[in-house]
Design a protein around this nucleic acid. Sequence first.
DNA 1: AAACTTTAGCAACAGCGTTGCGTAATAGGG
DNA 2: CCCTATTACGCAACGCTGTTGCTAAAGTTT
Lengths: 369, 369
Amino acid sequence: MTRVTADVSFLRGYNQALVMAVGRTARTFERATVVEATGLTPQAVSKVIARLSADGLIRPAGVRRPGIGKPAVVYELVPDSRFAIGAHVARRTLRLVLVDLAGTVHHSAVSPLPRDFTPEHLLDALSAGLDTMAGTGDLRGRLTGLGIGMIGPLDHANGLVRDAHGLRHWHDVPLREIAEKHLGLPVHLDKDVTAGITAEAWRHGATFGDAALIMVESGIGGGFWLGGAAHRGAHTNAGEFGHTVVDLTGPRCVCGRHGCLEIVHQHAAEAGDIAHAARVLAVGVVNLLQTLDLAHVVLAGADLLGHPQTYLAAVTEAVQADARRAHWLTTKVVLSSLGADVIAAGAAMQVLDQHYGIPELGHSVIVGG
Amino acid sequence: MTRVTADVSFLRGYNQALVMAVGRTARTFERATVVEATGLTPQAVSKVIARLSADGLIRPAGVRRPGIGKPAVVYELVPDSRFAIGAHVARRTLRLVLVDLAGTVHHSAVSPLPRDFTPEHLLDALSAGLDTMAGTGDLRGRLTGLGIGMIGPLDHANGLVRDAHGLRHWHDVPLREIAEKHLGLPVHLDKDVTAGITAEAWRHGATFGDAALIMVESGIGGGFWLGGAAHRGAHTNAGEFGHTVVDLTGPRCVCGRHGCLEIVHQHAAEAGDIAHAARVLAVGVVNLLQTLDLAHVVLAGADLLGHPQTYLAAVTEAVQADARRAHWLTTKVVLSSLGADVIAAGAAMQVLDQHYGIPELGHSVIVGG
DNA sequence: AAACTTTAGCAACAGCGTTGCGTAATAGGG
DNA sequence: CCCTATTACGCAACGCTGTTGCTAAAGTTT
């Protein structure tokens, strides 16, 4: 267990991050906007704004005349002041995206990976992709790092791929370390679904409540945003949502149990009954709501996005049927606005978040073993 | 949404809480212990210790002679320097406990509540119980408040009971407000299961990882401790774990869905097959582990504690069978050490936690509607 | 008695947000 | 044209935090 001590530099980072969050959410903002959103005094906001301006992260963008009195200075985030590259490592493909400080995806590219690719294969593909991305513009000094969203299981805290599902050459690979050495960039490693939900949270800003990203793509996974941060669990293994039992008498799943959401859904989909498959998924989603009480559910993944309206309708209907019992149970169900880029973009945003997001405090890590 | 700003007073409270957590976990401690546990400088710890000593929260408890050099001063928490009273409001009973700063339960008392009791009934029972508790010793100035753990749904942030299950007279009752007025004490209101998991976390200290309290008592509920804090969800409605579907073709539940964990479990229990009921519950627990990746599972509730070893064995077996796939997936399953007091004690500890626990920051509240 | 080791704490310091108050910039009224 | 009200901004002093540098205290060992 590690525990971060709180000193004055934490205050600096924390309040700075609050202002950045305002800038990311609102297109433009002024001092009074931040004061209201954060509860800081105007004077404190002035100091923070001065620091951020000096770093080139925000800039004045005109004035607003309040009718009477001195005009207010309007600021805006400088989106292209910082960039990060995100990678989505799937079983057969590598997707790379370039994301700016505002969370906008600038470039997106997919390249195939060899069947049963090795760490070396991946590093070469990353290296080549990074060169292409960096070649599209002069990013020197503005590139904060590379985020990798990958299938698990893995160990986020130590940057270790434990035993990636369906990949033979990935047992206890210290991917973060070797990638940093090979690429000369800070690297952040996380589960694909966790990266994905970070993308949604980063773009929505501080008002984003507890949420889940439901991903259907060669399996069913869930990424969680709880209490203002990504939830990874005790061993970075949260999100194996597809392997929750929804049918005690159902068919045997690859995981050894019977009637997992994933196998029941798969049978329905393979039978061609997508509507039924979507309703099965919806049962699982309502199970999540009962357990975690979420404000947002975001749907993503290639298999799901192949029939977006079918899934959206089924899940929305099930959620509303359940919420009908209580008027205050409001949960928004949406399709991911980033589409197929959501994992890679989220991985990039995790890197940006490490620098310009709310710093973590009292972070306890239990390393299993 | 409200967002708390970070200022120097936050630092004070935060680091103070770190020291208090050390004192609560370890029976005795010295300056060097805190330095290692928190990462603070020795000098900073000295200042914090001086403040806490002045408040009477900790005191010197001898010296340790390191063999060579100046002896180190050994400190200890002063358990009876602060107290809180906790209430567990169930459908037919009210349980009250007196808890000290160390988390020790001093007195526990159960009194019956009339069928379909009203808010007035409860206030009278609370009032009478508090007088008895306070009469057992002079608590003036040392009683920090009353915590209430109650069946939901309720609104934790606003201290409102929305519509307590099975109680007719409890629709939108501002219980926190009227109880504070009636009793002249600060009152904290939360769901029973959330209070329960707080008890476990408070007693285990900072090393307590992600955890769940599984409660089987006229229904099945779950309380969650995630990322170092209680997880309540977007509308204080997290934990309706009993109403997750585990059998798509199962019997219809009171909630309207089919094959909820609660109804399937209930059928098995009513048939007298407790071992089978326990295995059904275990399926639900493993579902939780798959979703949330927990480090601890705590079992509680009157119905479960009537057959403690049966349930403990079934859940432990299921968890280990699942973890067998990966050596690093370690989850501890235990029975609640506080037994029947866990909810009431946890409610009391929530009050203590508000004063002497880690202050929350960046806490966003979404009020549904 | 002198040297060494370990622990404790005083004093000065840098950096944070806050407070008090003066200044800049605009519109409207006399 | 000038004055006033209004709105926004920022300098300067302040209180408080944890940090740093250094000294003092209280033991054991030689």
